[in-house]
């Protein structure tokens, strides 16, 4: 079917969305929005894994599904990260009554 999309295009898309995610992490003040931006970055990385897996040749003896497996584990870790992250955000929200990351400044002098 689709043998005409160059590999680079997937990489461009991943790079662009990773950069947008990075901007989001730096710019947003709300902790949940920061978490969302981190999810964007993780997804961009996943696209790269799968694209390289699909376009590259599998050496003999290597796993035929390497990129997909890594992507599956990234998804697993992302789910765990979101669960713990939201737990922490809720804890901080209860303590400071705000979900903005620049309000969590107890440690700054």
């Amino acid at each position: 079917m689709s043998h005409d999309i160059p590999l680079n295009w997937f990489l461009y898309f991943a790079a662009a969305s990773f950069s947008i995610g990075l901007i989001g992490v730096l710019v947003r003040r709300n902790a949940i929005a920061v978490l969302m931006a981190i999810e964007i970055m993780l997804n961009a990385a996943n696209i790269n894994f799968v694209a390289f897996w699909r376009y590259g040749e599998t050496p003999p003896g290597a796993s035929p599904l390497s990129g997909v497996m890594v992507a599956v584990f990234v998804i697993t870790v992302a789910a765990a990260e979101v669960a713990v992250g939201i737990g922490l955000i809720l804890l901080c929200y209860r303590r400071w009554h705000a979900a903005d990351v620049d309000r969590y400044d107890s440690l700054s002098g």
Binding site: M1, S2, I5, F10, F13, I47, V50, A51, W53, R54, V68, A71, V72
Partner: peptide, 11 residues
């Protein structure tokens, strides 16, 4: 959708 384009519909 990108994963589908990359023929990884399970993913």
């Amino acid at each position: 959708c990108q994963f589908v384009l990359l023929e990884a519909e399970f993913l």
